[in-house]
Design a protein around this nucleic acid. Structure first.
Lengths: 316, 316
DNA sequence: TTGTACGCGTTATCAC
DNA sequence: GTGATAACGCGTACAA
């Protein structure tokens, strides 16, 4: 293992110069920099991040806290996780995972927290280390999330563009910010066209969505598009429509949200608002690392634009 | 932040004595140990693992390599991940995640690798750092997996105990060790009862399982139990049976495998062979850490017993 | 059994 | 702009 000293010796400079070439290149003259860089190359030098962390009084570890039951966790969490890991890895940070409240404040430089509810606010303030939330919140904490409102605006507008006469929203029955935002996106778009919103709300299960459609079949006229707050719901709706022998997408359109189950075999393939989970994770990492670097300075909120993926469950 | 020296000073001993109390307690006399331990307590001392890692020339990081497309990854990966994180955390190790082959050999102490195929064998040997595989393999590498064969033995025997006359296996159409083992468990059990095995194989999607049952409906007599190689398949089978108006569990039984989708609303609830993913992950961590400690010594294979969770899709 | 001196690889500080 | 020195906190080797 070649060290800083080895490089220094080879380049006939001091360790500090080498260190500066790595961390503060502008502080060293170009000529010297060349020499040092060449020495690093020839010796195949790779910095030791553990030593660096020690000197900085850091751990180079960020803890991801998931405040939800792992068993009910959505499959998209994997993408989020890899995005985070990717973002951290770029800066040689590693990950620690935690579920319960074993948030011992030691051993990590910062936190990424997902799935928090109002009741968690108490201990959030007492963490003592910088943190970033994944998911909208209205308490003023730094967060990153998909632009849920925009997502459903895109979906609703698309349904109208495709000339579905009636556009119905099927939401998730939870009092959470993300759901409010999605509904708002739907409602706003309809209102701007002088149309009256119509909203159902159910728990996020495909079988419940299926039931909902079956049970309300009589009041559902053709030429309707369903804007669903999740792909699970959308899949259930499609199943019900197929059971009823309805024509998708001619008489009924279906649009989902999330875009993770797309690879699942489903017929027809579902048009959906795809969240960029990997990118969200990557930014989450970037944000917490910056916050750590800036000694806890406020970072604000970031909303990532989702992408409307057009497929077979809506008119062509 | 209190350090070793602080404790040493308070206990009026040398740093080394304190260090020994932590790492080699038996090398220090009980009385001294008491004094030191009390000092640690009073000062609320927590060891600095970064410094420790530096002294040991380690990184305290293990890399998890997932050689599958993240998007098609099963939801149970979350449980596995948290098991791993849990096992690593106990020893103050952190995690790095990698998908593609960016397996740069630097910066980590060891690897946990999942989803490898025959073609990956080449570079596995050249890793230069210890690694453990998740999932059966027949190349002699250390691995941990569920006892797949035993799992289907339990399932098949249970079906027979419940007096289903015909027991049919629906497997996953992949040439992988885990599938061979599951089929072997089913076949062995049937043969030991002088019964003739009957196996279908499909891709792992519920809709394909549903089709399979519908298409073969005529040759499926009542008093049959389906042993499915995954819960996805089992769910599809149940859907098909319900469409056909069949009586579950009286005329038809269904047993799944995995046990992760259990929380999903399904009617009837599915009897399944539940893999203990969290535990698997925990052991995976334990194993790689031990291998690191033992400087790469062979660890062998470990099969974890799954649990047959009895529910509503089989006779009472 | 306990203590001393030094090394692990990097960075901050303060001279020059 | 560059270099010497002293940390960062802990562990090994050896001496006592």
């Amino acid at each position: 293992m070649t060290t800083l000293s080895d490089v220094a010796k080879k380049a006939s400079v001091s360790k500090m110069t080498v260190s500066r070439v790595i961390n503060h290149p502008q502080q060293v003259t170009p000529e010297l920099r060349r020499i040092v860089e060449q020495a690093m190359e020839e010796l195949d030098y790779h910095p030791n991040f553990v030593a660096s962390a020690l000197a900085h009084q850091r751990t180079n570890i960020v803890k991801l806290v998931i405040l939800e039951d792992i068993d009910t966790t959505e499959p998209y969490y994997m993408n989020l996780l890899f995005g985070i890991a990717n973002g951290l890895g770029k800066h040689h940070y590693a990950l620690q995972l935690a579920t319960d409240n074993d948030i011992t404040t030691d051993g990590v430089d910062g936190y990424i927290i997902t799935g928090e509810r109002a009741k968690d606010v108490n201990w959030l303030d007492q963490l003592g280390k910088p943190f970033i939330l994944f998911g909208e919140n209205r308490f003023g904490y730094d967060f990153i999330d998909t632009d849920n409102k925009l997502g459903e605006q895109l979906a609703t507008q698309y349904a109208l563009d495709k000339n579905y006469q009636s556009v119905i929203f099927i939401g998730i029955d939870e009092k959470e910010a993300f759901e409010y935002s999605r509904e708002a996106g739907y409602i706003n778009t309809l209102q701007s066209h002088n149309l009256v919103p119509k909203i159902f709300r159910i728990q996020n299960h495909s079988s419940l969505a299926e039931e909902l459609i079956i049970n309300n079949w009589k009041q559902l006229a053709p030429n309707t598009c369903f804007i669903c707050a999740s792909d699970r719901i959308a899949i259930g709706v499609v199943r019900a429509l197929k059971r009823k022998g309805a024509n998708i997408p001619k008489d009924f359109g279906v649009i989902g949200f999330d875009g993770v189950l797309l690879n699942q075999i489903s017929n027809p393939k579902i048009t959906t608002v795809k969240q960029k989970f990997f990118e969200l994770g990557d930014l989450l990492a970037k944000m917490i690392l910056q916050k750590i670097k800036q000694d806890g300075a406020q970072q604000g909120e970031i909303l990532i634009e989702p992408e409307l993926v057009k497929s077979e469950s809506t008119r062509n």
